[in-house]
Structure formats: structure tokens, C-alpha cells
């Protein structure tokens, strides 16, 4: 009876798109990662774990792309969540033009990564870039570095740019979390004579836990898939110093070495299946409480 009112053919269009352009390529990719598929030959042969050996061998540059991706994810997650909490606490009350500040801090997260990348290519330019010009003018020339060129700073510069872009989004989620805390808790704490920091420690942070969890999940899912920002800012350079997983895949794709490219995607696929499983569990728990 129910299936007559809510017929299955309503689902079919979406399901077909999703299967054809998302699920099938992922599964095909699993198989292709055990082959020597490339643009040089028509034939595709099974070569076992050869591609994975290349990816994980210390002599090649693929492994550093993997470790860079993980480092990027950890660093941006900590920075955005940490700063997001601090700024959310500051902007939650007692600030004039609160909505103006919030709107402005959120704004970079709606811009395209390409745009943000291009803007910061200019700002971080060692000679003419706004950052170094500013540092020189206020007498801090020793802090002016070759931001995107120097091996030591290039990757951290990318992390900083990404934090600039994504911070407002995370902050907004935390603010929503803060506003869902019932004021009675603070009133009770005031009666007990609690100070700001003990209120923060015993009321605010424990009740913010769900919001913080979701921001961490979002950051991790996003960080592992990073591509555009790195592609525009450094394209993996200097050398392979700032290469991440998806820029590596794109490079292999351009060189026609599809086998290694799919194998790298498969590594990401396995990592994200595990994280994805927990994410879905988490989202489902929420959905019940809507």
C-alpha cells in the first residue's frame, strides 16, 4: 500500500545519476588500481600491487603527497576549530555590530578556491605582495619571507590561506552551538559564584561538544580532498614540496599514468570509507532528533 503512494520510480532518476557518475567510477577505480592502465597503450594488464608499491616507496614523491595531505588536514582542523571557538566566544555577546562582523568573517567561505588562491598569490608575492610590503613598512622586515617559494614556508602558507578562507564557516557552526545552550545553566553557575573560565570549562565547552565534533568531521573530510587551493597557489611546488594527494592524481592524469592515479584515489577511498562510516552514523543520530 505504502509503496503505491510512495512509488519507487521517484527514486530512480537520482539513483541512476548517483550510481553512474559516482559509485561506478569509484568501484571501477578499485579494479584499475591493480592494473598498468595508461594513455600509452591500448592494453590494460593486471599487475598486482605494483602501483601501491610505487606510491608507498620512500624514493618516490607520492608518499610525501600522502603525508602532506594528512598534515594539512590535521593542521587546518586544529587551527580552524581552535580559532573558530575563540572568535565565536568573542562574537557571541558584548560586541557592537555583531552581525556585521559575523557576515564579514563568513564571507571568504563562499568564494571560489581559485579566486582565493589568485588573491593570495598576489598578497604573498615576495617583492610586491601586500604582506611583505606591510611587514617592511612597520619595521618587521625580518618577518618578510619568500612565502610560496621557500621550501620552509610554502606549505604553511597554504595552510594559513586555507584557514583564512574556512574559519568563518567553522565559527558560524560554533556560534549556532553556543546559542543552543540554555541560559539557565549560566544563571545557575552565576548563583554558585562561578568565574568566566570555570563557566567556560564546566558549562560551555561540554555543551559545545556536538558542534565541535561536527566541525572536526567536516574539516577532516574537506582537508583530505584539498585540491584547488594548492593547485593555484603552488601547483605542488617548489619541487614536490607542497604536493597533496589530489594534485598528485591530477599530475598523473596529465602524464597519462592512469594506473598510479587511480591507485592514489583508492588509498583516499579506503581512508574516507572508514571516516565516512562514522560520519553517517553521527548524522543519522542527529536526524532522529530533528
Amino acid at each position: 500500500m505504502k509503496s503505491r503512494i510512495y512509488p519507487f520510480y521517484f527514486v530512480i532518476g537520482t539513483l541512476c545519476l548517483y550510481l553512474l557518475l559516482f559509485v561506478v567510477p569509484s568501484i571501477m577505480g578499485l579494479f584499475y588500481s591493480f592494473t598498468d592502465w595508461s594513455s600509452y597503450s591500448e592494453e590494460i594488464n593486471y599487475i598486482g600491487l605494483e602501483n601501491f608499491k610505487i606510491i608507498f616507496s620512500p624514493e618516490e614523491h607520492y608518499f610525501s603527497a600522502l603525508s602532506n595531505t594528512v598534515w594539512f588536514t590535521v593542521a587546518t582542523t586544529i587551527l580552524k576549530t581552535g580559532l573558530g571557538i575563540v572568535f565565536a566566544l568573542i562574537l557571541n555577546e558584548g560586541v557592537l555590530f555583531r552581525n556585521f562582523h559575523r557576515g564579514l568573517i563568513f564571507m571568504p567561505s563562499i568564494l571560489s578556491f581559485i579566486i582565493v588562491g589568485l588573491i593570495f598569490k598576489s598578497i604573498l608575492n615576495p617583492e610586491t605582495g601586500l604582506l611583505n610590503v606591510f611587514l617592511n613598512r612597520i619595521g618587521l622586515s625580518f618577518l618578510a619571507k619568500q612565502w610560496l617559494v621557500d621550501l620552509k614556508y610554502a606549505f604553511n602558507s597554504i595552510i594559513a590561506v586555507d584557514t583564512w578562507k574556512g574559519l568563518g564557516y567553522i565559527m558560524t557552526i560554533i556560534i549556532a552551538g553556543l546559542q543552543s545552550i540554555p541560559p539557565e545553566y549560566y544563571e545557575a553557575a552565576d548563583i554558585d559564584g562561578a568565574h568566566y573560565f570555570s563557566k567556560l570549562r564546566y558549562v560551555t565547552l561540554p555543551l559545545l561538544k556536538p558542534a565541535i565534533t561536527i566541525t572536526i568531521v567536516l574539516n577532516v573530510l574537506y582537508g583530505l580532498k584539498i585540491f584547488d587551493t594548492v593547485y593555484v597557489l603552488t601547483n605542488g611546488g617548489p619541487g614536490y614540496a607542497t604536493e597533496v594527494l589530489y594534485t598528485s592524481v591530477f599530475r598523473e592524469f596529465g602524464l597519462g599514468r592512469y594506473g598510479v592515479g587511480t591507485a592514489m584515489s583508492t588509498v583516499l577511498f579506503v581512508m574516507m570509507s572508514v571516516i565516512g562510516y562514522f560520519t553517517v552514523k553521527l548524522l543519522d543520530r542527529k536526524e532522529v532528533e530533528f
Binding site: V11, T14, L15, Y18, L20, L21, F22, V24, P25, S26, M28, G29, Y32, L221, L224, K225, V249, F250, E252, F253, Y258, G261, T262, S265, T266, L268, F269, M272, S273, I275, G276, Y277, T279, V280, L283, D284
Partner: peptide
């Protein structure tokens, strides 16, 4: 339908395999 719902929202996390997608 329960299974399909989970199957679809799993896509929130999963990466795109650009190389094999080109084949498709």
C-alpha cells in the same frame, strides 16, 4: 529505502575518482 538513504549520504564523505570517472 533505509539502505539507499545511507548509501546516498555516504557520498557526503566519499572522494571522487577523477581518473576512472573519465572512463565513464
Amino acid at each position: 529505502n533505509r539502505f539507499l538513504y545511507f548509501f546516498i549520504i555516504m557520498g557526503l564523505a566519499m572522494p571522487v575518482n577523477y581518473v576512472s570517472l573519465m572512463k565513464v
